[in-house]
Design a protein around this nucleic acid. Sequence first.
RNA 1: GGGCCCGUAGCUCAGCUGGUUAGAGCGCGCGCUUGAUAAGCGUGAGGUCGAAAGUUCAAAUCUUUCCGGGCCCA
Length: 982
Amino acid sequence: MTEKTADTSVDYSKTLYLPQTDFPMRAGLPDKEPKILERWTSENLYGALREKAKGRPKFVLHDGPPYANGHLHIGHALNKILKDVITRQKQMEGFDSNYVPGWDCHGLPIEWKIEEKYRAAGKNKDEVPKVEFRAECRAFAEHWVGVQSAEFQRLGVIGDFERPYLTMDYEAEAVIAGEIQKFALNGQLYRGSKPVMWSVVEKTALAEAEVEYQDYTSDTIFVKFPVVDGDLVGASVVIWTTTPWTIPGNRAVSFSNRIAYGLYEVTASPEGNWASVGDKLVLADKLAEEVMKAAKVEDFTRLRDVTAAELLALTLAHPLADLGYGFQVPLLDGDHVTDDSGTGFVHTAPGHGREDFEIWMANARALDLRGIDTAIPFTVDDGGFLTEDAPGFVGRTVITSDGDKGDANKAVIDALVAAGALLARGRLKHQYPHSWRSKKPVIFRNTPQWFIHMDRDFVGAGKNEPDTLRTRALKAIAETTFYPPAGQNRLNGMIANRPDWVVSRQRAWGVPIAVFRNAETGQLAPGPTFAKSEELRARIFTAFVSEGADAWYEEGAKERFLGGLVEDLDQWDQVQDILDVWFDSGSTHAFCLRRRPDLKWPADMYLEGSDQHRGWFHSSLLESCGTNGRAPYDSVLTHGFVMAEDGRKMSKSLGNQVFPQDVIKQSGADILRLWVMTSDYADDLRIGKEILQTNVESYRKLRNTLRWMLGTLTHHEPELDPEFAELPELERLMLHRLREVGDVVEAGYAAYDFKKVVGAILNFMVIDLSAFYFDVRKDALYCEARSSVKRRAALAVVDQLFGTIVKWLAPMLPFTTEEAWGHRFPGAGSIHLELFPVLPDLWRDEALAAKWAKVREVRRVVTGALEIERAAKRIGSSLEAAPIVHVSDADLAAALDGVDLAEVAITSSISVVATPAPEGAFTLPDVAGVAVVPVKLTGKRCARSWRIVADVGSDPELPDLSARDAAAYREWLAGQAEKAPA
RNA sequence: GGGCCCGUAGCUCAGCUGGUUAGAGCGCGCGCUUGAUAAGCGUGAGGUCGAAAGUUCAAAUCUUUCCGGGCCCA
């Protein structure tokens, strides 16, 4: 064959170094990713990562535990993807970056599911032993941990999924119980009280989500509270309420400084009316007339204004003072008061309403100073009966065990009438909370709860400056780095203003507040004054570690733990309340970070949605400040929420939800990850069809560019790589650009600004590589001889570009980069075991970059000129042109020195001249000093490189080839002969 | 109602401490190529920078108000 060289039918494409690769153009990620995952599992990538990073400094991103009760939603995906990218990034930066996923397993929503199951089976929760019920909750949580674990891994998340942490692990339960005991020991845990929604019928506390609002007819009353000191003595402040039975619980009257009040006098009233002539009443101006009408007053007059300052200084008497309510009733200024209905004053019974409680507690310190007892009375028991704390009404019922109205309202109203304190009464049909189970009305009743002090000095604190949970937490916030910085402010504001932390719940599925309380003295065990605290703690810890917190609920637990440590067991009550789940998750640092030798405390980072300022960031901070004196994290990163495409919340009813499972099924996890990477996660982010499509397009471009590199690198022979000094300018320019992009990538990763990283890489790939460098170098790479320095230099640089880019992308697109890496180095290990490349500063060459910026200016003018020709159908391919470039600008001319502009502009030839351009030459307004005259070539085209050059046919044996191609072809033939000597 | 935050081309984002005709990628229209081909190259059209007022010689960039949206509270 070799001698028949003149054969024009030779398919020269076979003699070129065209890209060859099995790396498919279409990714097929939904099918491919699971296979890659299988490989990671079978090859134990996680173990290899740990092994590889042994001895490196640790970076610990501590996982905030999702709640184990359902499939992942898009918010989970966002959260885990961000965590995974940072974990992988740090590993490739040279840390031992170990990620241990966790789950939040206790709590109400899981209890509900189990109760629901019971109801469906006609069973009653209360008839089931607590330990058995807890076992069902545990099994339920276990199931969802498994489901979510698989879903997280499908996203590409790498971590210790074999050994995650669960808040319901026995050891975790033991540590959590130990943590609350620490608060008991340092004097921060105390028993207080708080109103909760209570169903008398079911004898249980209810959460907000367990009540539904239904129509209900309430008795309404207007009640006079007599003023007992100051100018207004003799007048009364009037309140209105729909719950007369709460009057015994009244401790204050609230008003608002935004409402105008006046002093009113009744001037005409029917005989025997409750309101009589001469009565002086303080009312909101806007409501005075309505109130007078309700009180059947015929005429009245407004005497004067009553200011907020005046009200604030007033003291009232309780309307039933003679029955045993002889305390002072203060006036409190509160934002919750309006003058839309009622009297403009709000009856405040801190044991019977959330707002009542809040305002009472907010004023507690000031009231103490006034000599007012701030203890909240327990006026109603769990059966709905009024108690000793409601003198005069003991045994009256608010709501009966059947859910009917009891006799308490009537008794209170009668007493008010007898005391002359009732101004008017009526009925009101309104929306009132009912239990969603029994459909019967519920009440707010004061119940004992466990709190942690925000403002009490720790036991053993120095006397000079305050050492309280609040001061510690605020200091810790100041010492934490926040991404974005606004998080600091937000968390600070919440900690600065929050009330004491309520940690108790009257539920079954959780970690018990594992303390005992002396019924008489209130002493806690363990506690600051209980001598054998440590022994007690050890007993409980040991039991919990081997049996779980169920040990607390087993028969004889009190004797088991406290036996021998106290004189009289009967004096001690075992606390049955469990801990709020926020305390559980707030303790993850204690049972996970502190106890796992492969992690460290404090964590380098906590990363969650911005809602967790109120949640996990908050509870973890308080928990750790209380037990360790500092935050459990050095930095906090927050992301926003995922919105639908129009920027509004996703909702089932609007049908604008996007599910991660669907995206993965349609496009793949790497697309979902790319979406996260191109979004500004610090703000709320949007997702939808069009947005995903945008990312799919970006991905395609990225993938195809990698594919071309892989194809070209098939011909790469590393041993033929030239030295840096031998590289042509164009190659050195690309290395310079790569180094520059490296700066952006490095800075982007350092700031966790991923959109900056992908943006820089993508732009580089599109503008510098695909549209310029690769396009220009195709001729050399495809056509030049194996021995050509230019070709070898280009291959060396493409190799460098590929390796660097793929590693940079690896944390973000773990599947695609693994796939590409595998094609480049078949049989080699995972790309995820690599480190980010360190690029030599030698590559930096600003002068070269400046020069080539000018070259590319000129190139733009050339391509612009050719575009005109193309549009006019005078040329097709740019190889059909041989433009004349008139360069009058000295700088540009200098820049072109030594540059093969034809090659750069991908024309067959080009003439650069200094002569003035003729009329009508092509110019660009923003490139001065360059004018281009296009010239169409009519010569013979080289059959191999398709260039129209003068030396086509100069090799007589190869008349259809240019000189270069003829030589390259001969070299190729020789190589073939060597390969196949037969 | 309160605290924190956001609103730049169809989409995702750049636009620093205020200073020439507001940028990029993708998408879209048109053309070329057919040796990255369900790819590649070129080129074009898209924005009163949420609205208004103010500060300033000068505002997308500072201030205020309003509109729209989000998280957390109430």
